[in-house]
Design a protein around this nucleic acid. Sequence first.
DNA 1: ACGTTATGCAGGTAAATACCTGCATGTCAA
DNA 2: TTGACATGCAGGTATTTACCTGCATAACGT
Lengths: 104, 104
Amino acid sequence: MHADKVFKALGDPTRRKLLDLLCERNGQTLGELCEGLDMARQSATQHLGILEAANLVSTVRRGRAKLHFVNPVPLHEVYERWVRKFEHQRLSLLHDLKKELEGE
Amino acid sequence: MHADKVFKALGDPTRRKLLDLLCERNGQTLGELCEGLDMARQSATQHLGILEAANLVSTVRRGRAKLHFVNPVPLHEVYERWVRKFEHQRLSLLHDLKKELEGE
DNA sequence: ACGTTATGCAGGTAAATACCTGCATGTCAA
DNA sequence: TTGACATGCAGGTATTTACCTGCATAACGT
């Protein structure tokens, strides 16, 4: 997994909105996605390209249209690597901080 | 939760390394964290500031030193909002794609 | 074939980002 | 108090990013 691409892709509100749009209805075309975005088509293309490079979106050509599908796998990998790892700290964090504030 | 700050904070390899370093040993000082980084102290300060602004790191002053602690809460919120939401698609994605490739 | 529609590609600009150097402030220990 | 140590703050630069305009290509329907 390329954490860099995934997190950078998610670090933009337009791209997160694109994912939400695709979650509502999978397989939309570029034109359809643009309707919900309030920016030029070319900008949306760029955002979708970044999502695709991060493997968060997969595409299928269908005639002159390009259909976009969410790929949830990288999100799950993010969870495995960056959420679960820190889960066990949710209690020990408080412990560490408390000890520190009490003077070691 | 401020998804923007959290994802942007995570979208840099230096900052992810800082989180890993703190995961190994919580409560390290700026100087200690710098030893594992290969960049000027001021740059690390900037990265830690971004992590703190995203609420991924909390700090406690202790005399002239500043101790850093991981805060796993935003990571868990990311999971709730951006991973679980797309979990149910892990099967339906294949379904959608298959239908599409078969010609609707 | 022709016009319409959907997307691709080239490039240009303003803002944000990641790094740095240099100097200031605050704390500890002798 | 003084020197050493830990961090804070100001600013400067090169790269990346997010947006745009303009033109090119490809597919559909009549």
